[in-house]
Amino acid sequence: MSDPAAKRGAVTAAKKALFLVFHIGSERYALKATEVAEVLPRLPLKPIAHAPMWVAGIFAHRGNMVPVIDLSALTFGTLAQARTSTRLVLVNYQPETWLESRWLGLILEQATDTLRCDPADFQAYGLDNRQAPYLGPVREDERGLMQWIGVGDLLTAEVRALLFAPDLSVGEAR
């Protein structure tokens, strides 16, 4: 015996995705939780010479060197505020589907909430912001607009080359 209302509820739940919600200033943004590897407190970073100002530095985590960017500085040119709710969020950065994903750290303000919603609730907002291709569609709710951040679009090829050494095949000169 099956309950049709229960089936509808299961289908609705299956369409929903979990998002990590954070702020840049007073504006809300979201990352899809499946792209988040780990949420850490803010940690000391080693600066990277000749990197853009929004590249916060690098740190060692579980045997890996992880580059970190300040999303507030990247987006609006203002460093993230040092709050107790400011987090270092490790994301699985994969700019192309054929490339192996790597950890990229993001400094995010007020990264303490989650939201479960249908990804289709986020809609294109009609602007062609070529300078910030990572700024994705928006979702409206009772608190205003929230924008989805596309992790794979965060870095230009030039910055990606600076932060991630190319993988050399066995036998290639180093």
Rank of each mutant, 00 (worst) to 15 (best):
A17Y: 02
A17M: 11
L20C: 04
V21M: 08
V21F: 00
I24M: 14
R28S: 04
T34R: 09
E35F: 13
E35G: 14
A37Y: 13
E38Q: 13
E38M: 12
V39Y: 10
V39G: 11
L40D: 08
R42A: 12
P44A: 15
P44I: 07
P47G: 04
A49L: 08
A49V: 13
H50T: 02
A51K: 00
A51S: 07
A51L: 01
P52I: 06
M53D: 15
W54E: 04
G57Q: 07
I58N: 06
G63I: 11
N64K: 10
N64T: 06
V66K: 06
P67F: 02
I69E: 01
I69K: 03
D70T: 13
L74S: 00
G77K: 09
L79P: 11
L79C: 01
L79S: 04
R83P: 00
T84R: 11
T86F: 00
T86R: 14
L90M: 11
L90W: 11
L90G: 09
L90K: 04
L90H: 12
V91N: 09
V91P: 08
V91M: 00
Y93N: 01
P95Y: 04
S101A: 12
S101F: 12
G105P: 12
L106P: 02
L106S: 00
L108Q: 04
E109M: 03
Q110L: 09
Q110K: 09
T112E: 15
D113C: 05
R116W: 08
D118T: 03
P119S: 03
A120K: 08
A124S: 09
L127Q: 01
D128R: 06
N129S: 05
R130Y: 06
R130P: 01
P133W: 06
L135T: 08
G136Y: 03
D141N: 13
G144E: 06
